[in-house]
């Protein structure tokens, strides 16, 4: 038996898929921005010499790196609202979970980058009268960030793939839209194939851009090869 491929039902619903892709990018973007900011804060706390700051930060990082993201998502969607007495939309649950989760990973990237800067840079900054915070902001971070870019891009791409999990709590991302269409049209083969191809094209475009950026950075003298 040969299967008759027919993509017209999928094309007829391309609006739903496009809206799904927009929602996927929305969750990814939100989690990325919050994750980077929160990740920097966690990294600085973890690097603090005071153990009452570094221990809790280390604990949060370890917990979110060692538990499965889907378990975290379920906890934030089903358990937290009851515990805190708040309303939680699927988008909020996804944004909160993936922000904290990617913050835990970004924190390790930041920490690695900051630690990789030679002591002499700190000493030099202090010698010309900068405070610890000024030295960090003006001298150490700008150099560290450049070294961290490849690891950042990799994490961002991982994050985009992880966001597909929101489909399991009925947020209308690209995967959820595909599932809807396949149930409506009875064309699972075509819809899921198209969805997979859309993900492939978008993610490949991002990783090609990342590779290009990496090459540019390595030309400008700063080795970014880990």
């Amino acid at each position: 038996m040969t299967y008759q491929w027919d993509f017209t039902p999928v094309l007829a619903n391309s609006g739903l898929l496009a809206q799904g892709l927009v929602n996927t990018l929305k969750v990814t973007g939100t989690a990325l921005v919050c994750g980077v900011v929160l990740g920097l804060a966690l990294a600085l706390l973890r690097l603090s010499p005071r153990s009452y700051l570094s221990w809790p930060a280390g604990f949060v990082i370890e917990v979110f790196r060692t538990t499965p993201p889907l378990v975290q998502l379920f906890w934030f969607y089903f358990a937290l609202p009851l515990l805190a007495g708040i309303e939680m939309t699927p988008f909020m649950a996804a944004a909160v979970t993936f922000s904290i989760q990617s913050a835990a990973f970004f924190a390790e990237v930041f920490r690695g980058g900051i630690v990789s800067i030679e002591r002499g840079q700190w000493d030099g900054a202090r010698a010309i009268g900068m405070t610890q915070a000024q030295a960090l902001r003006r001298i150490v971070l700008p150099q560290a960030v450049k070294r961290m870019i490849p690891a950042f891009m990799e994490r961002a791409i991982e994050l985009m793939k992880t966001t597909t999990l929101v489909a399991t709590i009925s947020y209308a991302d690209l995967l959820y839209a595909a599932n809807e269409i396949s149930q409506k049209t009875f064309r699972p083969l075509e819809t899921f194939t198209v969805a997979a191809l859309i993900y492939f094209v978008v993610i490949t475009a991002f990783s090609l851009a990342a590779r290009q950026l990496e090459r540019r950075l390595s030309v400008s003298g700063e080795s970014t090869v880990r």
Partner: peptide
């Protein structure tokens, strides 16, 4: 370059 959940489904 494709998410695992998409592959499983």
């Amino acid at each position: 370059n494709t998410p695992v959940l998409v592959q499983i489904l």
